[in-house]
Design a protein around this nucleic acid. Structure first.
Ligand SMILES: [Mn+2]
Ligand SMILES: [Mn+2]
Ligand SMILES: [Zn+2]
Ligand SMILES: [Zn+2]
Lengths: 157, 157
DNA sequence: CTAGTAATGGAAATGATTTTCATTAAACAA
DNA sequence: TTGTTTAATGAAAATCATTTCCATTACTAG
């Protein structure tokens, strides 16, 4: 990374710096990996991908950075029930790419899908409104995931 | 499955035995606690409640039994994102009591709700069908949870 | 450039859950 | 009832993702 140049790098600079966080090499490396990979990486996945280029970025920093990034809203922390958190970029250069997840309980592959998103979002919004009113609950987010067997694993039985 | 009930036993006796599992004191104690408590107990919660009456039932057995029970379909294993699994009876003597969850991210209380269940279930079924067809995915279950601040925690800000 | 302090990495700690293994006790046939 | 089979059990040790500690480093404003 060239020193002294704080502008014109990644598209996330503005948002990141705007929240009062320092922009370090390790953090950029992590964002870089996340933006170049197909989502759903675990902390260790990221560590393994970052390490060759930044051997001095430790796993601890990966965890800490992912925490910061998800607080800032740049990444989503996902839980597919396999005992380790997964992370994906909340938005790309073009903006948010809203999707939901289909998880294979056999091979643990995760599939993004956007079909039905509109109806889902519509119902979820309505439900949130209704529940919020009835229970005086201020809903901030939700989790909707489908689990099952992917084509490959289903055929293999 | 389904086999004659032995008299004087819990309502789960038939289902449990029908699956080829032995019915032990520890297992009955755990089912008993689950059926008498308002759901969402962690393994340790259950251990603490079972221990006074069955001091010789260890935490290991609690975990093992909960695993068996959820395989048999008698309990649901729930994950509210606080790092420990929670368990609730899948059905009472009267049958299934389908509900969804509202989780307070501040005090970690979990609220059951049945409102909107019909619309939710309808949409979920439709989505499952559509996704199953499009991705050749055999969907077996789903998770839908809302997170936010309960009345108390929201007011306290 | 320098002071102030956020960020870092490696080691140790944490904590829920699982595994190991010797022992106990359901289930069932005799 | 009694004996046989083998599932179930408890205590301790192991796992393993994530967090905490703490001494050191390095962004950044001034
Ligand atoms: Mn995704
Ligand atoms: Mn519940
Ligand atoms: Zn699969
Ligand atoms: Zn609350």
């Amino acid at each position: 990374m060239g020193r002294g140049n704080c502008q014109g790098q990644g598209w996330w600079h503005g948002k990141f710096r705007g929240c009062g966080y320092r922009l370090t090499a390790g953090r950029e490396a992590i964002l870089d990996i996340l933006s170049k990979s197909e989502g759903h990486l675990s902390a260790e996945d990221i560590y393994i991908k970052v390490h060759p280029n930044y051997p001095n970025v430790g796993l601890t920093t990966i965890y800490r950075t992912l925490d910061v990034l998800s607080n800032v809203g740049l990444v989503y922390k996902l839980d597919f029930g396999d005992g380790r958190a997964r992370y994906e970029l909340a938005q790309g250069p073009k903006g948010a790419h809203h999707h939901h997840h289909l998880v294979c309980t056999e091979c643990n592959k995760v599939f993004d899908y956007t079909d039905f998103i509109d109806e889902e979002v519509e119902l979820l919004r309505e439900t949130e409104k209704g529940l919020g009113a009835k229970y005086n609950f201020k809903i901030t987010n939700h989790v909707l995931q489908f689990y099952g067997l992917c084509e490959k694993c289903n055929g293999r039985k």
